[in-house]
Every structure is written in structure tokens, then in C-alpha cells.
Design a protein around this nucleic acid. Sequence first.
DNA 1: GAGCCTCGAGATCT
DNA 2: CTCGAGGCTC
Length: 284
Amino acid sequence: MVRVLKELRPENTIPFEMPTHCPVCGQPVVREKGEAVTRCVNISCPAILKGSIEHWVSRNALDIRGMGEKVVHQLVDKELVNSVADLYELTEDTLANLERMGQKSAQKLIEAIEKSKSKPWSRVLYGLGIRHVGSSIAQTVTEKFDSVDKLAAAKVTDIEAIYGIGVEIAESIYKWFRIEANQTLIERLKNQKLQFIEIQSAASSNISKKLEGKTFVVTGTLPSLSRDEAKELIQKFAGKVSNSISKNTDYLVVGENAGSKLTKAEKLGIAQLSEEQLLEMVNS
DNA sequence: GAGCCTCGAGATCT
DNA sequence: CTCGAGGCTC
């Protein structure tokens, strides 16, 4: 890709101009120190909005099924949605009027939006799209700050005190909560009954570490668990999940239509488990 | 029934 | 990232 561009250029002498304004909304862009790129920081820029909504609905965030790229773009372009909080005020009829959407899809989508309200605080935090806060950091942060109110009130040094979190992330979170638009967003989402407090279920607070020290890889289609559910289950019991087979893999959980991972595991003589056997390991 | 959209899975690289 | 399957609209 880069090579092609160079070849197309008559001489390699044309300097690449760093954009000073957002190509989509025309607002000035900002370059953070130490970064090689500029970013649009206009919170109502359509491009930023689309990105943040796509992130909010994504698998590891609020997991709103049926809300794909096309739907998000339509909602933003028609100005039906100006922030993620607006998603919770959409009606079935509004959705059914979108291109390529019928009553049935609209109904399913409304259900998926409703369902997202029960997603845990860690996913909500990840969904907010704070710079440097990915799903793993969000998980770590919510283990120490079990509600937004506590996190919003925390000083940089409080956040930085968490093992595995440095100044950069701590400052990023701290700054995010000082922005007024973000504060009102949180208020709206609270009223819409999103989860901002970690519910300590009796099961998770006192769970055994049965799989501690073991590394798993999942392949194929399992009879009842989805891939992510299987991963979550393993992690819940302190096991590690990897995406590829290596000498360090302890078990391969095998489902229907397993591919090259099974072949490789056989070659390395790695123990195999069925979904049923995995469940037995954690339930025994 | 064709085409559109979303989603899961494997492969591959970093 | 790319492919293919499945569900839904039109």
C-alpha cells in the first residue's frame, strides 16, 4: 500500500502535509504530544460520532446485535442519533423506516438495545471509548473502582495506584471526566438505566481458581457455548486463553469443524477437551 | 428469489 | 483481513 503510493508519486519530494482541519467536519484538529497523527476532537463531528457509536455497540462493549455499520451511518446522517444516549430513545417505528430495515429487524434491534442495559459496568466503561482504555484496562479499573461515581471522583494518583496502570492512562481517564459533555452523557445513561455499579454476584466474589496456571485454546464450533462464552468461562476460573497453539498450550477445547489448530495440537501432543469435559473441570 | 447486511470463524501478522 | 453462512428486505 505504502509502496504503491510512493510509486504513483512522480518524485519522493512531495512532503506529506499534516492536516490542520478535519476533512469531515472542518474543525481544527489536535495533535497530542509524542503522537505522529492529528485527531479531530469535535464531539459532534459525524465521523467521530459514527466511530464512537460503532464502538459502543461492538461485541466487547455493549454488544448490540443487528446494529451494524449501515444502520449507524443512517442514524447519524439523518440526525436521529447525536450521542450514544440517543440510542436508548429510539422507537421501533423510527428504526423500521430506515433503509433495508423492516418491522422484524426493528423489533429485534430494540430488544438488543434493551438487553444492553444489563451489561456490566466494565463493558460500559470500555464502551465510552476513553483513550487508552481498552476492554482489558476497563476490566482492571472497574475491579478497583466499582462505580462511576468513585472513578469520576478519583485523582490521577488514585487511578495510577492500580497495578498495571501508568500516568498516561490515569490522566486520560481523569481528563475525560472533567469534560462537561461527558458528565451529562453519564447522567443521561444513568437515567436510562445502564449499569454504573459493579454487581458483586455471590458466585463471582467467591469463585475457585480451578484453571489457574493452565492455558487454553478454543477451536471449532462448540455445542452450546459460543467462542466468547467459552473464553469468559475459562477466564472466570483463572485460566488463560490464547488464540494460537504453542508448546505453552495445556488444553485445546475442540468443537465441530475444527481446522488447522487441531492438526497442530495433534502434532505437539496437546491434550484435547470437549465442551462437556471443560464444563466438568470447572464444575467438579 | 436475489441481493443486502451482519456475524462467526480461521489465518496471518505484529 | 477474508470468506461463507444465515436472516431479512424488497
